[in-house]
Design a protein around this nucleic acid. Sequence first.
DNA 1: AATCTTCTTTAGAATAATTATAAACAACGA
DNA 2: TCGTTGTTTATAATTATTCTAAAGAAGATT
Lengths: 136, 136
Amino acid sequence: MTSKQEFIEKLRNSNLRPTKQRINICEVLFNRDKTFHFTINDLFNLIKDKTGEKVSLATVYNTVHAFHKKGYLKEIPINSNQTYFDTNVTDHHHFFDVKEEKLIDLKSEDVGPIEIQKSIPGKKIKSVEVLVKLED
Amino acid sequence: MTSKQEFIEKLRNSNLRPTKQRINICEVLFNRDKTFHFTINDLFNLIKDKTGEKVSLATVYNTVHAFHKKGYLKEIPINSNQTYFDTNVTDHHHFFDVKEEKLIDLKSEDVGPIEIQKSIPGKKIKSVEVLVKLED
DNA sequence: AATCTTCTTTAGAATAATTATAAACAACGA
DNA sequence: TCGTTGTTTATAATTATTCTAAAGAAGATT
């Protein structure tokens, strides 16, 4: 359980004004035990449900992008019409249940170390993502 | 170099009528040495350039989806506003140059075997994809 | 507290990729 | 050649996302 006060501090420290909307979004995103995978639309609906207050869709987009930029959210590369985000920003990978359109975390240890044996001159590796698609 | 006749046969064997449009698309997609990464829009423009004949955008979508369904094209999971496809349908992975928005093949050997140490009851693994993002 | 500046929210418009529609057309089998 | 079925096409519809510009709220300054 994280208190509203902590979100306010975290926002201030990130040079983001602690507005009512952002705090509500924090509550929905970060006030949970387990990692959370979502699309903008999921989040938009959850805010209304969980906090009782409506936040405009544009603000949800703005805030998610701001949080992503600050490194509080991770974007998950997946083939879907919608963009998926993850509150777990540590180094880890994903199962994607194609039928259910649902993501499941894989710990780094569940996958093992990945050694890339090729390099491109002038470029360095920014991230390595493993996506394991699941079927029935 | 693959001949038009071979494309016609391949299409017929796949229960796809060998139309002028589909043959042109085959020429652009499969008449090359190296693997080819593309978006629908890339392909749409290339057809006009390479064959001199125009194919409607809707047909490009239809055909790419048909070829994908038949297993002649692979969809690459990536976060982009456009969907990327690959003519290399063998088991392999990718670099993605974020700045240039360009994909580069990684042979399976370049990455090494990936052992997934976790399983989900009732589900089996359909594919394992590694995406290595590159930055300058 | 009043004022000023800057950042944020918002509704709605704009954009862009993709999918759906339905009429014209082309391939195939009889 | 004719009838059937599959295909192409322009265009409209849909959907996710971004843009815009005006109203509102937060923070700093007095």
